[in-house]
Write a protein that binds this DNA or RNA. Sequence first.
DNA 1: TGGATCGATAAATTTTATTTATGATATAAG
DNA 2: CTTATATCATAAATAAAATTTATCGATCCA
Lengths: 300, 300
Amino acid sequence: MNLQTFKYLIALEKHGSFRLAAEECFVSQPALSIQIKKVEDELGVVLLERSPKGFFFTPCGKEVVARAKKVVQQVEEIEALARNWHNPYSGPLSLGAFPTLAPYFFPHIIDHLVDSYPQLQINLIEEKTGILVQRLLAGELDAAFLALPIKEDDLEYGEIFSEEFFVGVSKRHAWAERDQITAQELAAEQLLLLEDGHCLRGQALDYCSRSGIGEVLNFRASSMETLLQMISMQRAMSLVPQCVAEKNPQLHYVALEGGGPTRTIGLYWRKSSVRRDLMLELVDDLNREYGQKDEFALHL
Amino acid sequence: MNLQTFKYLIALEKHGSFRLAAEECFVSQPALSIQIKKVEDELGVVLLERSPKGFFFTPCGKEVVARAKKVVQQVEEIEALARNWHNPYSGPLSLGAFPTLAPYFFPHIIDHLVDSYPQLQINLIEEKTGILVQRLLAGELDAAFLALPIKEDDLEYGEIFSEEFFVGVSKRHAWAERDQITAQELAAEQLLLLEDGHCLRGQALDYCSRSGIGEVLNFRASSMETLLQMISMQRAMSLVPQCVAEKNPQLHYVALEGGGPTRTIGLYWRKSSVRRDLMLELVDDLNREYGQKDEFALHL
DNA sequence: TGGATCGATAAATTTTATTTATGATATAAG
DNA sequence: CTTATATCATAAATAAAATTTATCGATCCA
């Protein structure tokens, strides 16, 4: 059993081709072929079903590859651990945030990050929540700002802040003079939502079903910007989180009586991350700087 | 980076000696020395602090060894997966149970197990809960019967059964004619408990503190058998789970009005276990055979 | 059908790990 | 205070392993 062979298997799954896999691993194609066969012998199991026209992984092969990926990732984490041992505050740090947060939140923290950790080379990645979680688990991201809750055993998180949703309407809308409306009033209206995959969409739908708001406009905006555009054209209204509202004063925002729905943002990272201590420190920092409470929750 | 080297590191930590570690790995001492040095070069980190009188692991070394253990264990799980792929119902299966359950529970299920899975070579291990969890996580056990709750991310479980605790007293005791007593009455008495480390002790203490029973006899029996002996000598009373009571009719058992404390037993295994499917089946089986409800809870 | 591509195989080669032998240092016993 | 016996490190020789180059047979597509 051999880590290099695991990498071969993983590359093979990725490319579906011996030649390409070998290329990625910077070895010749026979080297890869032989090692794959060897590991099959060693395990006493057929991992690939070969035919003259190609090959595919057996169920057992798929299971082995899935586990091999975890193993290789952990080894890479050992290597990173050693690399960063002498200075955990140096090197590249990749942070993610989902699209309805990133453009409104990153500008707030970027200066603080750069000042506090000058030796870190910070990469900011904007992706939908699902992709972020995936990349986090795959070790491609060090941490991500995500809306609670995220159910992943391998991740832990600290809460950063909570914010309310307001009802965003055009300044020419009938509600433009009002500060508050009731959930009942909202229930009579139709809401524009983002397209599938945005966590904000899920949060809004949650709130609607809990508040008995059934109907939502069957048109889905593909980005927050589009959505705000449509609202300002008086074509729609929507639930808008506070940080987005603050950056878009061209609209009017109506609060929901008794408090609207809220979203809580947490910073998530792998429990096994080599940057774990740094992340804990960062959560502490961000709470001091931008947090609303004296106490903040860590979920480790 | 190399799995064999990880094994060397682990053996080195285990024995604290190059020679012994090499022996365990069936290689010569220089082979081990050289590989350790090589991995240090490769990682660019000193793992061992060497001195003429010996060596110890650096903080970084300790971290690396801890992670290496996980990696090696997962690789072993891949090997086991492959071995058992063609017949998951064959080979050795190690099951644990804690001391206040094992002797009373294993006899109930052993026939069923042997009949249902004739190709499995079943090993039963009796240890205190803490040790069982440790051995489970280390991959030395396939599964263990444990009292809920157990907080371990890497484990999952299915509930098997719940049972009530009764107050066990001698047949010559004043309560020997009674069927029920109240928690208040019990509060006036002193309870004998098992020594530290037994989960039953924790459960009893929990109940006592919740029921306002403050005093417990400051003498700790080292086994359930001793405890029952002492009770029958009229020297004490204690909380006894139902399955223990059934096997010891020489005592009298008084129920607590409104129901006494209960313990729920679950079968726990590693989420990554190669026997996962078998375990799910076993939980199902045991519930059909011995479970009290039609529905049983799986916590995956 | 001919050329290109794919993966398997064989032999030669290189790289890597391991053994044997030995050295330097410290500890324990006489 | 010596001597014997541990310990781990080092060096050279050996064994084992992975890798490369070269080649084959099969399929696919024009």
